[in-house]
């Protein structure tokens, strides 16, 4: 669907995108991950034909973004970080206008607008002026305008930025619902969020692609460890006995939590979650909770980008 080769974008003396090459298959949901200024937005703007690359090529479904921008624009729906909305218009009128300029035939416009309203759960807001909507709803209208013409490729730049926790959950569900029907490329600097939504991550640092793959692959390539926390009920001796049966445990730590609960912390280079759970239960312990420390992803990211930065 998308092929990027040796892409470079300079803003004067500043290089925003530095020799990025990658491919994104049809139907994939890919997240661009990076700190502010990493080049995510520039890359997305090039994909959306808003910027022209300094060198290199980008093709969408075989169409070059520089030589055939009009064909590329027919294939994409784009939501920048700040949703581009005509605030004085009503939601349904706005979507009908967007569908029209994106080439949806007049007779299909009503149906497409209804579909977009439905998918973004905006039916009850169809007659409202956009200026009266909350920021979360405006973001939804922004997504609705990006999908109203049913494009094969949907590009979302920081779709959850500025949303409150409840709105983030709703937006996550909305993005998940888009998967399958569209190829999705989205950006975020919130690692946990993007890893929950995307099939594959592209990690950017100072315009360079420093990591690519699933969360596990990226973690593996950066030498990441599995840090597990297990809450148990039972005797300490049984825990020691169970741990003896599990291979590849590098570090362990057991502490008392309350009168009859134990907290076990395990560090391993391998994913030992299934094996560990089986052994603990098999030893007669009550397994109350087993969770992987999610904040490790941040550590991985910083390690990944920090090491690359150090190398440069």
């Amino acid at each position: 669907m998308i092929e990027i080769k040796e892409l470079i974008k300079n803003y004067g003396e500043v290089r925003a995108v530095d020799r990025i090459s990658c491919q994104i298959a049809q139907g994939e949901c890919v997240g661009l991950l990076g700190l502010n200024g990493a080049g995510k937005t520039t890359l997305l703007r090039i994909l959306a034909c808003l910027l022209t690359p300094t060198s290199g090529t980008v093709t969408v479904d075989g169409h070059d973004v520089v030589r055939q921008p009009e064909q590329v624009r027919r294939l994409i729906g784009y939501l920048p970080e700040e949703p581009p909305l005509y605030l004085e218009m009503r939601v349904a009128d706005f979507l009908a206008f967007v569908a029209g300029i994106r080439g949806v035939p007049r007779m299909d416009t009503g149906g497409r607008v209804q579909q977009a309203l439905q998918r973004c759960q905006l039916e009850h807001m169809a007659g409202e002026r956009i200026e009266t909507l909350s920021y979360g709803y405006r973001k939804r209208v922004g997504i609705a305008q990006a999908i109203v013409h049913n494009p094969p490729l949907v590009i979302l730049d920081e779709p959850i930025a500025g949303l409150d926790p409840a709105q983030i959950v709703e937006m996550r569900e909305l993005i998940r619902a888009l998967r399958g029907e569209h190829t999705l490329v989205l950006s975020s600097h919130i690692l946990a969020e993007i890893s929950q939504t995307c099939d594959r991550l592209l990690v950017l640092q100072r315009g360079r692609l420093v990591g690519s793959g699933t969360e596990e692959e990226i973690a593996g390539s950066s030498g990441r460890e599995f840090r597990l926390e297990v809450l148990l009920r039972g005797q300490r001796a049984l825990v020691e006995q169970a741990l003896g049966q599990v291979e590849d445990i590098d570090e362990r730590q057991l502490e008392q939590r309350g009168p009859d609960e134990l907290l076990l912390r395990v560090v391993s280079s391998q994913d030992v979650r299934a094996q560990l759970a089986a052994q603990l239960v098999g030893a007669g312990l009550q397994l109350l909770e087993l969770r992987r420390q999610r904040d490790q992803l941040e550590e991985v990211f910083l390690k990944l980008t920090g090491s690359k930065e150090g190398a440069s």
Partner: peptide
């Protein structure tokens, strides 16, 4: 000024 230009610039309109 209002950030709506991308709406038009990413449409098939030249």
């Amino acid at each position: 000024e209002t950030g709506t230009m991308p709406l038009l610039s990413t449409s098939p309109l030249s």
